[in-house]
């Protein structure tokens, strides 16, 4: 069994989109859930958030940032080709029902992961403010898509190259201080960004949901590789999350655990272990 890439699109130099044929997963997918894929026999299992799905077409979209060996290899797989394994939907969907006014925050690739949340909230009739942040204007993704599903879209860049300089936290603070009353903030992006968003919203007592992204292997609760500490308790992000109350997450421990395999990741990326030349793609 293999999973065909029916569409591939480069969104920016580091980020690309893949629409994968996976009807069983498309049928069940909800915002906040993820899949685990493996490219070929030699591959590792890596989690990716479901960025979009089309139940009729039977496809699931993932958005990938090139950060290491597997994502580099995945970038080599072309439209029309297949990958070996694609399993899901995993994790608990983000609870979105009943929310009235929400700020959805996406940092970098997190923007892609925040998109399905914004889309669902919008379809449920909530007032959605989307705040996304990128290093510079050339890296901005999904601007048009997000415009369609939000009442207000703020795109910030670290260097101000799009004319809107600042971090997502600066933008959120400005919104809150101008009198916007959010009943929930949903933050998705790098751990450090989510941590700072939580520090900010805590001051204003705004409930904040974050989407954790620890190392995973099976993604079904059988190994605990993805465990994080939330409110003093050990949780498995793959089955209890990946969404958690951001004000209860032990951020320092999560940041440290994220680095456990750093040396190996670098070694895996070195020349000579490249997949080119040893392809046995499905």
């Amino acid at each position: 069994m293999a999973y065909k890439i029916v569409k591939k699109e480069v969104l920016n130099p580091q980020i690309f989109l893949m629409e994968v044929e996976a009807p069983l997963i498309a049928k069940k997918a909800e915002p906040g859930q993820f899949i685990i894929l493996r490219i070929d026999e030699y591959g590792e299992r890596v989690p990716f958030t479901i960025a979009d799905f089309d139940r009729k077409k039977g496809t699931v979209t993932i958005i990938v940032q090139i950060v290491g060996k597997t994502t580099k290899d995945l970038a080599q797989v072309s439209e029309g080709e297949s990958i070996l394994d694609f399993a899901g939907p995993l994790g608990v969907p983000t609870p979105l029902e009943g929310l009235k006014k929400v700020a959805v925050i996406g940092g970098g690739l997190g923007t892609a992961i925040a998109y399905p949340q914004a889309k669902k909230l919008h379809s449920l009739g909530a007032d959605v403010t989307v705040i996304t942040g990128f290093r510079n204007k050339d890296l901005v993704i999904l601007e048009d898509e997000l415009k369609k599903v939000s009442n207000k879209l703020i795109v910030a860049t670290d260097d101000g190259s799009n004319g809107n300089q600042g971090f997502v936290t600066d933008m959120l603070k400005k919104e809150i201080e101008s009198g916007e009353k959010f009943d929930e903030v949903i933050a998705i992006g790098p751990l450090v960004m989510m941590k700072f968003v939580c520090q900010l919203t805590k001051q204003y007592d705004i409930p904040t949901t974050v989407s954790m992204n620890p190392v995973m292997i099976d993604g079904t609760g059988m190994c605990g590789g993805c465990r994080i500490t939330v409110g003093g308790e050990t949780k498995f992000a793959c089955v209890d999350g990946p969404d958690f109350d951001g004000h209860k997450v032990d951020w320092d421990s999560a940041l440290k655990r994220g680095k456990m395999f750093k040396d190996y990741e670098e070694k895996s990326c070195e020349d000579g272990h490249c997949r080119i030349g040893r392809t046995n793609r499905a």
Binding site: I217, D218, Y264, K267
Partner: peptide
């Protein structure tokens, strides 16, 4: 033990970096 053994046995972590799982 599940994580340790799954990495080694199922993912062939003992053959890293020929196999990708460390």
């Amino acid at each position: 033990a599940n994580e340790f053994l799954t990495r080694i046995n199922l993912m062939k972590g003992y053959k890293f970096p020929e196999y990708d799982t460390p």
